[in-house]
Amino acid sequence: MPSIDSKDVKKIVVACDAGMGSSVMLASQLRKSLKGLPVEVEHTPVNSIPADADVIVCHAGLADRARASAPGTLLVPFQLFIGDPAVTKLVSTMKNGGTINA
């Protein structure tokens, strides 16, 4: 299982199908939550995840496509666009330090 130390995370990518709706909303939330940390948050379509992404955040229903598009990159799947526990945990690990696991 891939894992990464929070201080090595420079880019988090929120992936969705069209990059139009929910991923935009979640990316803006993540940006706000992680403000002040040296990490970039982007939103992109699931089939064009940039190669330098350290962590991918995407809806559980898109996880297979995200894995196929960026094999080997740590993936955090979520179910809820607002207030998902997996996303909350990612934010707290980024802030407090620690290891992020898939």
Binding site: A18, G21, S22, M25, P45, N47, L80, F81, I82, G83
Partner: peptide
């Protein structure tokens, strides 16, 4: 569906 009785329908890529 994004919560609080709100949905944000949009198209595909």
């Amino acid at each position: 569906y994004v919560g609080e009785g709100v949905a944000i329908p949009h198209g595909t890529l």
